[in-house]
Design a binder for these strands. Structure first.
Lengths: 230, 230
DNA sequence: GATACTGCTTGCGCCAACGCAACGATACTG
DNA sequence: CAGTATCGTTGCGTTGGCGCAAGCAGTATC
């Protein structure tokens, strides 16, 4: 299924400096795949034969520990590339990206990566910036987990979600994909129970409005104050 | 102070694919600086005008939170590059690298980075792999902080230290630079007190041998078992 | 070799958050 | 539209690890 419409990816910063011809060449090698909710694009530990770009939808990248506990490493939003393990000198994928919403993904064979980096330094620079930003997000999260208590961590997580996936509605800002209490727990390193209690308390104070796999932020300012200590 | 001996860096994987001429050109632009224990190479938030490579010694990269708490983001070991904020699309440094031991550092102006990436794709690929590895370490740490209890986190941290800075002695493996209980606490997201208690318990069991800013691992195998659950 | 300093240890009380458990509520399914 | 599965809420007992505080032991200073 080659021949993807360039207009789909033209606007992405990752490809901003590529010529039309280069972009065409890149897209010729690509395949388009669709994933239903709950489906995994690939499995943790599988051989890294492809890398990907999320066109539409939403993915959560999870890792499982030896004793079966699961955490959400990060969310993948439209326009993000993911699964480029080979570029990071790995032969297998470190996590499992699962569709939280119906998703459309562009897939490339890993060989294409090296080829294009070689021919196009811009792409390397852009990719490095992408990874760099991710590294910083990771460090932020480490700092939060080390120093902040659960309620503030959850506040930060929710704020991040409304930045990356917030849809403004009349009643507030809605998180634009199905997200469970369990998900939030796995993003903040706590339990489903604690998240539920915190969200209930917030709802009583009018900060948010919950629902089954739904979350609406009514007062982002108050939430931001809560996230930064008093 | 230009004209650094190429033999100092020749062996580093980062420069492995550079020709002698390219390496010379790179080193012409560099400066060598020395830091005493406790000195900072640069301060968190300062404008990123240079990037660096640690030749000799040991640095700890710290971040301070708004309310004054400190954490150690990572350790810098000889051969590591650090402070390449500009490559990550930042104008300021996200953390402060402080010398834990007497250290020698190569410094380049940031402009050199773009120049060399452009001219030498290998360097870009190598740098990306370096950042990629760091990203994975960060994810590992996030997973540990989310799922493991303090004792196991400390065990993992110590194991990582003996890999990166272990010097085998007759009595066991010594960590090759001054490290305090407070440091270990800031690496694992806990308090000095808890670390002290844990290390005391380990010492009673003959796993380690402590001391002022010293740590000797007597039984790495037992420590590894402790780090992985039972 | 006395003084100050900095880093390490240990005891004790306390609380945030976990784990268990039971119960509601909402969405899918045939 | 009953039946079932999934997701969310809430109560309660327990506990890991934090914070305080006091004391100890090396290391540097003059």
């Amino acid at each position: 299924m080659a021949g993807i419409d360039p207009s789909l990816v033209r606007a992405l910063p990752l490809f901003s400096k590529l010529s039309a011809a280069e972009l065409d060449m890149l897209l010729e090698q690509a395949t388009l795949r669709r994933f239903a909710v709950g489906e995994a694009v690939f499995e943790q530990g599988a051989a890294a034969t492809q890398f990907f770009l999320l066109l539409h939808g939403r993915l959560k990248v999870t890792q499982v520990t030896a004793d079966g506990q699961q955490i959400i490493v990060r969310m993948v939003h439209p326009g993000d590339i993911f699964g480029f393990a080979k570029a990071l000198q790995r032969d297998d994928y470190p996590g499992t990206p699962t569709a939280s919403a119906e998703s459309v993904v562009i897939c490339w064979p890993t060989q294409v990566w090296d080829l294009f980096i070689e021919k196009n330094p811009h792409l390397a620079v852009n990719a490095m910036q992408t990874i760099g930003q991710r590294l910083q997000e990771a460090h932020t999260r480490i700092r939060e987990m080390a120093t902040e208590e659960v309620e503030r961590r959850v506040a930060h997580a929710v704020l991040r979600l409304i930045i990356q996936a917030g849809k403004t509605e009349s009643a507030g800002i809605r998180i634009d994909f199905p997200i469970s209490r369990q998900d939030i727990a796995e993003m903040t390193g706590t339990t489903l129970h604690t998240v539920s209690r915190i969200l209930s308390a917030w709802e009583a104070k009018g900060l948010v409005k919950g629902g089954r796999q739904k979350l609406l932020v009514r007062d982002a300012t108050a939430l931001r104050e809560l996230a930064e200590g008093d």
